[in-house]
Simulated scan of single mutants.
Amino acid sequence: METIVKEVTRTFYFGDEPVEVTSLARIDKVTNEDVPDAELDEETLRKGEAIYRKRHNLIEPENITEFRQKFGISTVELANLLNMDAFELELIEEDGFFPTDEQNLLLKLLIEHPEPFKEYWSARSA
């Protein structure tokens, strides 16, 4: 089978919400049908997730990681501090799951305004 890689537009659904993504896909030259390509397909999905995150002002997983690394706090410690389930926080941070509205608000407030956390964490660590 001979294939080509070309730019295509696809629609993904996150819940009931459509998200259009234009990206590269592997196509069969003869049938013009999609051919699975793990790398290209994963990149397309990530683009869709990024569009959805931006549209809904959701926290980026890497922002959580950077915050934890900056302050030397574990996933479990951060989850406990925010009264969240550690497994859920791990899914949001490491697997790109979307947070609930409440989780998103708490994480964004903490990361965008870390001063109260710094004071709390310093006092707790002393």
Rank of each mutant, 00 (worst) to 15 (best):
Glu2Trp: 06
Glu2Asp: 15
Thr3Ala: 02
Ile4His: 01
Val5Glu: 10
Glu7Phe: 04
Val8Leu: 10
Arg10Ile: 06
Thr11Arg: 06
Tyr13His: 14
Tyr13Arg: 10
Glu17Thr: 04
Pro18His: 14
Glu20Lys: 15
Val21Ala: 09
Ser23Cys: 13
Leu24Thr: 08
Arg26Ser: 13
Asp28Glu: 10
Val30Glu: 15
Thr31Asn: 12
Asp34Trp: 07
Asp34Phe: 07
Asp34Ile: 03
Val35Cys: 10
Pro36Glu: 11
Pro36Tyr: 04
Glu39Gln: 12
Leu40His: 08
Asp41Thr: 11
Leu45Met: 11
Arg46Thr: 02
Lys47Gln: 13
Lys47Gly: 04
Ala50Phe: 02
Ile51Tyr: 02
His56Tyr: 02
Leu58Met: 05
Leu58His: 00
Asn63Ser: 15
Ile64Val: 14
Thr65Cys: 04
Lys70Gln: 14
Lys70Asn: 15
Gly72Phe: 06
Gly72Arg: 08
Ile73Phe: 03
Ser74Tyr: 00
Val76Arg: 07
Leu78Met: 09
Ala79Ser: 03
Asn80Met: 01
Asn80His: 04
Asn83Asp: 14
Met84Glu: 03
Asp85Ile: 03
Ala86Tyr: 00
Phe87Cys: 07
Phe87Arg: 12
Glu88Arg: 03
Glu90Ser: 12
Glu93Gly: 11
Glu94Gln: 12
Glu94His: 06
Asp95His: 05
Phe97Met: 08
Pro99His: 05
Glu102Cys: 09
Gln103Ala: 14
Gln103Cys: 09
Leu105Asp: 10
Leu107Ala: 07
Leu107His: 04
Lys108Ser: 14
Lys108Ile: 13
Lys108Tyr: 07
Glu112Ser: 15
His113Thr: 07
Glu115Tyr: 03
Glu119Ala: 07
Ser122Glu: 15
Ala123Pro: 00
Ser125Lys: 14
